[in-house]
Design a protein around this nucleic acid. Sequence first.
DNA 1: TACCGGTTAGAAAACGTTACCCCAAATGAC
DNA 2: GTCATTTGGGGTAACGTTTTCTAACCGGTA
Lengths: 406, 406
Amino acid sequence: MLIDENFARKHLLKPSYFPAPSSLPSPPARVSYLLNAFPETIGMTSKGTRQKRRRLDKPERMDIRTIAKAANVSIATVSRTINHVSTVNPKLAKRVWEVIDELDYFPNTQARALVSGRSRLFGLIVSEITNPFFPELIQGFEDIAVENGYEILVSSTNNDPKRMTHCIRRMIERKVEGVAVMTFGIEEPLLDQLAKRKMPLVFIDVAPERPGISLLKVDYHHGIRQGVQHLAALGHRSIAFISGPAKLHSAHSRAMAFSKSLKECGIAPNPAWIVEGDHTLEGGIAAMEQVLAAKAMPTAVMCSNDMTAIGVLHKLYRAGLRVPDDLSVIGFDDIHIAEVTIPPLTTIQMSRYELARSAFSALRAHVEHSGDSAPKREYNIPTDLIVRESTGFPRGTMAHLGKRKS
Amino acid sequence: MLIDENFARKHLLKPSYFPAPSSLPSPPARVSYLLNAFPETIGMTSKGTRQKRRRLDKPERMDIRTIAKAANVSIATVSRTINHVSTVNPKLAKRVWEVIDELDYFPNTQARALVSGRSRLFGLIVSEITNPFFPELIQGFEDIAVENGYEILVSSTNNDPKRMTHCIRRMIERKVEGVAVMTFGIEEPLLDQLAKRKMPLVFIDVAPERPGISLLKVDYHHGIRQGVQHLAALGHRSIAFISGPAKLHSAHSRAMAFSKSLKECGIAPNPAWIVEGDHTLEGGIAAMEQVLAAKAMPTAVMCSNDMTAIGVLHKLYRAGLRVPDDLSVIGFDDIHIAEVTIPPLTTIQMSRYELARSAFSALRAHVEHSGDSAPKREYNIPTDLIVRESTGFPRGTMAHLGKRKS
DNA sequence: TACCGGTTAGAAAACGTTACCCCAAATGAC
DNA sequence: GTCATTTGGGGTAACGTTTTCTAACCGGTA
């Protein structure tokens, strides 16, 4: 005879909630009263005697239990097989794998992560996914992650604080093990949410000095100095700079590196030639308009990124000016498309691959290495000038005339 | 005297699981023997008598229980509050929310998904993330998803079957509720994995006719005909076409639409002017080289996508030919950067927004509407010609001369 | 034969939620 | 005042895994 479920619950289960002495099967009403009287004892409950709620067996259920049954082993063995634990008998393992392949079983990542506490997931936050620089970075990061058994979760902020909040929330909710923040600028308060949870983090350019936080230090100065020297060598003395948005730290760094390099080459900066852009095509066009409106025209323009430079190229085309004959242009990033602009863009390369690799290494070091000596905090990212055809001798110089065929 | 928990479990709890009549407290060894002798009864085993493993209370644990304790309610109430179940007392809810904000609690998505069976996650598979068309699409899809309380998981295949396998696997493991396959071409066998699991799917251009599968039908013909008519109206009769990779269905559709439009305009196609590209910059350059090498030169080139067209523009620049004076060029997609190519690219627009919106609608309809009448299977995506400056009168025609200033 | 490690595999707790099943208190009807 | 009805909220099974604990088994030795 099966035990009546209600009966069991009332008479066997509930009493055990109790610190009371004997009388296991006390009457339900009484029990309830007492429970109310001592609500703080609720936590001491034992497993109930209630009949287990029946697993509803949809026919399409496809879990580790199905495999276990089919292979005639326990679920523990299946789990061990999947995770390549060495103690399982090769014969059994083979049988299990066969069943897995046969039934096209894929383990449920959520359950795995839940119990193991490891999501094997890294977050990647970028500013705008529509700037080609970032997809190239994402691709690199993902490739490396996948190679190493991790997955990535990408979010873009569009430099919008509200979206940033959403991104962070998403990362925490999905329990990523670390986040690479590639927005070229941090939002302190939001970052606190992550830091508070001791989440390993990687930043570019600037980061709070805290354990678990690494920094990718881009050597802007090296590449930008090369660029300025290249222009100076060609004879340019009037060089404009179109920066990124002022609030972005990396944009600031690039602008500083430019000023410093200018000084190193003994060129006096002209404030009218330092214009703020926003790292977009439109920003580049607008900024170039500003430069053209200035009293004196520069002979070369350096841009804080390639999208800006492409905007500049476009504006110059519209203005009927020729590159590099009338004006030289240098970009920054070396996105793929820079190779085929008209003319092909001289630019400063910052390796997406290096960036991705370093970011991943940093995160992994924090996650897997955490007991030992503190992992490396800083990674250096080099930059280098790539000379193409958007730079040339300035108009009207001897060199210029010497080069021109006509 | 407190009841010994173990005692209660052994003597009260265990028996009730057993259909066996008497002999409740049998010695463990004996039980094990029996289990081994009759492996098929394993499923019927009872709860263990073992002492509960103590929840290790790391100080930083931060779950629904912490909130419940702090707000002095049960975890059930916290859960209900978070999910905005209407039956919870507003006063309690307020208290709970305050605690949640206070402690910066974020629910664990994995646990939620595991128990509720709903991940609120849609997959998005694209071919190459480095083709600007796709980031724009991703952005649109993500925006719409987030607005509607979903998240997205993006994977790119690079048209590599191995990566495709990985993508599919990832989608299944992460338990997405539907997948938008925006690769412009499907890999039947892999798709089977998804279809077998009754996963809602959306494809572009072509899809198996099955319940749960929707189709985004792009009206290639409309836009491409506009393009051909535009060229024909300008006086072009020699029009080349650079297609995408032959194996891509969408590329084939575009090529077909081109041939058909040509015929409609009464223009005879020249096989030497139909060249296969691969939807990349490099492919565009190579294909244009082929066209230039042909005996007869066309006066216009139509491309299967904008990246190809940008490659063509570059090749023509290299060859010293001017656009549109020597040759007109038309692209397809209308990616953002097409506005600022030199010259700005005449192209055929296919709305990323429309694509993203339809894909999302389709998936959601399948997921949320599943009992009712079958959701819409097909969605139409319009295309439209955007005339910019890469098209003009063919060289040497009256019209051409009439237009030229010199 | 009995005892003792060393492997191997099974049983079940645990992960952090949701959803279901209850009970108790409040409410309404007579 | 009693009884039926509603309702808010507490307890806990279940989700699909991993991991720990324990027992069975197998040789080898005394």
